[in-house]
Simulated scan of single mutants.
Amino acid sequence: MTENGPTTFVFVHGSWHSGESWERVARPLRAAGHTVFAPDLTGHGRHAAAMTPKVGLSTHVDDIVRLIRDEELRDVVLVGHSYGGAVITCAAEELPERIARLIYIDAVVPENGESTVDVMPEVFTPFIEAALVSAAPWLMPPPQQSPAGLFGITDPSDIEWVRSTLTPQSVLSWMERARLDNRRATAIPRSHIHCALHPRADARRPVPPIQPNGTPADVWEIQSGHDCMVIAPSELVELLLTIATDNRSIMENPR
């Protein structure tokens, strides 16, 4: 990856979603000559039939590690949205030499020994509690539309499209703890994109001022609800390219 050369992106979707959620971001990036992978995690999208009570965080980490190895990818910009942040954090532990940068979009960023629900308990616990008293206590159905839309999406046609792609999420994926003990992974640069219009921004864990690699935190903001890849894809593409190339002259870092 060079400042003006093509970049290899691997996008990891969040809970209930699939790789299809990245379509509006992947298309222009590919058209510009970049390499883009946006896989469906086990139990989601085309792999929905593979969902079982044993599908957890480690299952999804294996999905991403296998993709990077099978495709022989290097200098990867690994991007995780929401729950996908936990997946990319753990995947980087397995293949730190293949990862050029981690980009977290409104994402869960666990510490060693933490689960997704540990990072944002006030957001995730109600879904788990509802599942545990249901007929399928290991599975969480997608949330219903609220007055604020669906994942911040308010356009009716977009809501219909995204809803058609959603599948239930396994409880284990949120409860399995991250194992982070590879010191080589701490050297990977990290960037964080926060969706400014997320109604639960108050529950977001603050980004530490210093990255694990010892450099200052790299935090950006996009004027969008949670599913910015659907709501504001053009703005997200520009921001991703800015971060991936470290070209600060294109867009001013708001922090």
Results as ranks from 00 to 15, higher is better:
R204L: 15
N182E: 04
P168I: 05
S170E: 03
P137N: 05
I159L: 05
T215W: 12
D218Q: 09
E129L: 15
L180C: 06
I153E: 05
F151H: 07
W161Y: 10
V108P: 00
D155N: 14
R177W: 06
S224Q: 03
V119M: 01
A136N: 13
I128R: 06
R179Q: 12
D158R: 13
A131Q: 07
G214P: 01
Q223N: 15
P189A: 03
G152R: 11
H198G: 01
T116H: 09
V171P: 11
G214I: 00
R183F: 08
W174R: 08
E111W: 05
A136R: 14
G149S: 11
P168E: 08
E122N: 11
P189I: 03
A135D: 15
P121W: 08
I159M: 12
P209Q: 13
A178P: 02
L172V: 06
Q169V: 02
Q145C: 06
C195W: 00
L139R: 15
L132T: 13
E176D: 11
I159W: 04
M229E: 11
P137S: 07
V230H: 08
R205D: 06
G113E: 10
A201I: 07
V230Q: 13
M140R: 09
R163V: 00
T116R: 09
M175P: 02
L150M: 02
L139M: 14
S146V: 15
E114T: 01
R177A: 13
V171W: 09
P121L: 05
D118T: 05
A178F: 03
R190M: 08
D218P: 02
V108R: 01
R205M: 10
L139H: 10
V207P: 10
C228W: 01
P156I: 05
E176K: 10
Q211H: 03
Q211M: 11
V119S: 02
R200P: 00
P156F: 10
S170W: 06
P137E: 05
P110R: 02
W161S: 00
M140E: 08
P216K: 09
V207C: 13
P209H: 13
W220M: 06
G214E: 01
L139W: 08
